[in-house]
Amino acid sequence: MQDMLRVENLWVSVDGRQVLKGVTFSMDYGEINVLFGPNGAGKTTFMMTLMGFPKYKIEQGKIYFKGVDVTDRDLFERARLGLGISFQRPPTVKGVTLRKMIEIISNNGSNDEDIRTMIDQLNLAGHLQRGLNDGFSGGEMKRSELLQLMVQQPELVLIDEPESGVDIENISLVGQAINSLIGKDKVKDPKRGALIITHTGYILDFVNADKGYIVFDGVFVCRGNPRDILAEIKKHGYRRCAECR
């Protein structure tokens, strides 16, 4: 069976600066993978490139999603194919309410009652009339991102630092939402997958991650059990882990 995602020798620059330097990566359907790495390593760049944001220039390499070469496909097409992303710091879009956003996304077929359940699950009923991310706290933004993804129902979910800016009480809520996105009650949907960026590793308490990777200076340097990797990072730091290939 083909990989859900396959990346071959990817070189990416942003604003003229080389960020990714020959990344080769693959993941199967049903996998949940975690990316670790210091700030500026290229983790977010990797996700944004997968998603197709124009600022991230692919100079070399290929991206295949569900067997389809999406390297030259635009953002909208990749979303329609089944990719979805939860931003670490989503932009504010005043004038477009969260409600409006959900309505537009759900034209792709989600059921009204299901949506109401999702809204309640994420405690966002009071935010529907507000501009997207306008004055939202860190936790509210994360929940809003996840709500949109739950309505969008992408097959591969890219989640950038789901815990950042989120208080301890809400991390559990975020974790549950991620599980809803990729399957129920930690029994994974074999057709869905997730790629999660984390610094703290807290999210590992809520999702059953399969593999962890360290991204360091634009390359993937290490792969293994995510909890083991996290322990190593805490003990030795990223650089030491990067040197131990």
Binding site: A79, F87, P91, V96, I104, Q152
Partner: peptide, 16 residues
Amino acid sequence: IAEEQVEYLMSRGISK
């Protein structure tokens, strides 16, 4: 119109 706002909506499967 802020490009990043347009791209944000596109990432949800909305055409440009």
